[in-house]
């Protein structure tokens, strides 16, 4: 019985960990009034204990041809696994947000381009690993060229 329990738990953990990823949304999705001024919100998916997930992020920018990087303040909302990203990067230039997370042994990443009207859902990219530098550079260059909607 114990062996069966351990097996079920392990399989469940593997299934959950295998699906660890992010979902982004507008601030209203958090159902938390404190998020209303956020650039966007996101939540973890496939993490058995979202409250224990390690989340961080940077804003990666191209300002007058020069690369910039700003560490983000990612704020946890009332509901576990839901976070708000507030804009702390300069208004000028082109910017993408690079999100990283770990849940037990699984990793997730996302690149979220920021346009003049806010985050661009359609051009956002999601990974079950951290985004690579090359992927960040590609998204940033595409945004600068107007390749992102």
């Amino acid at each position: 019985m114990l062996r069966l329990g351990i097996t079920v738990f392990t399989v469940a953990a593997l299934v959950l960990a295998a699906g660890f990823t992010f979902t982004i949304g507008s601030p209203v999705a958090s159902q938390d009034y404190q998020a209303k001024a956020a650039a966007f919100v996101f939540r973890t998916e496939g993490c058995a204990e979202p409250a224990k997930a390690q989340i961080s992020g940077t804003a990666e920018g191209l300002v007058k041809g020069a690369r910039r990087s700003v560490v983000l303040k990612v704020t946890a909302m009332t509901k576990p696994g839901v976070y708000a990203v507030y804009q702390n990067w300069p208004p000028e230039g082109e910017w993408v947000v690079n999100l990283k997370g770990t849940c037990t042994d699984a990793s997730a990443g996302a690149i979220v381009p920021i346009g003049p009207k806010g985050f661009i859902r359609e051009s956002s990219k999601f990974f079950q690993r951290p985004a690579t530098n090359a992927e960040i550079e590609t998204s940033l260059r595409a945004l600068a060229k107007g390749g992102n909607k």
Partner: peptide, 8 residues
């Protein structure tokens, strides 16, 4: 509604 709002 809470789930749909992630697309709003």
């Amino acid at each position: 509604k809470e789930e749909l709002s992630w697309t709003w």
